[in-house]
């Protein structure tokens, strides 16, 4: 969406299948037709600028479906070249903690390593898990 007008400039064509919206009903409309205003307002404040090193962290948004129902979905938002890019993840609540646990494990493992060989072996083992 345009960062100044907050109007939707592009949508992906699966918005119909995923959220029931016709593309033409969204293009050129204010973002709050699709996302509850309060949730998008606070999310945009934290959206990092690209390019930059700060990671875009997941933010939950209240997303409106065309039938008036709402869903809380996670998104990642960043700003680039005068536009906000809002990416919605549709399967978020199935998140598992395995990756996070694996990361914690590997950090404790990595702290004792001293060579590239040891490092890559441990790192691949972690990502495999």
């Amino acid at each position: 969406m345009n960062s100044a007008t907050r109007k939707i400039t592009h949508v992906s064509d699966n918005v119909d299948a995923a959220l029931g919206w016709q593309i033409d009903a969204l293009l050129g409309q204010p973002i709050d037709i699709l996302i509850q205003q309060q949730s998008i307002d606070s999310a945009l404040v934290d959206a990092p600028e690209r390019p930059g090193e700060i990671l875009a962290r997941p933010t939950s948004l209240v997303v409106k479906r065309s039938d008036g129902k709402t869903s809380k979905l996670f998104s990642q938002i960043y700003r680039d070249d005068g536009q906000f890019f809002v990416e919605l993840f549709l399967h978020d609540l199935e998140a598992q903690n395995s990756v996070i646990e694996a990361r914690r494990d590997v950090i404790s493992e990595l702290r004792t390593l001293e060579s590239v060989d040891e490092f890559v072996a441990a790192a691949t083992r972690m990502l495999r898990r």
């Binding site: 990642q76 993840f89 978020d92 990361r103 390593l113």
Partner: peptide, 18 residues
């Protein structure tokens, strides 16, 4: 999920740093 991807990105930064 978005959380797992974020976690992977963070892990990547730690790996890169080490």
């Amino acid at each position: 999920s978005a959380t797992e991807l974020h976690s992977a990105e963070l892990s990547s930064q730690v790996l890169e740093l080490l």
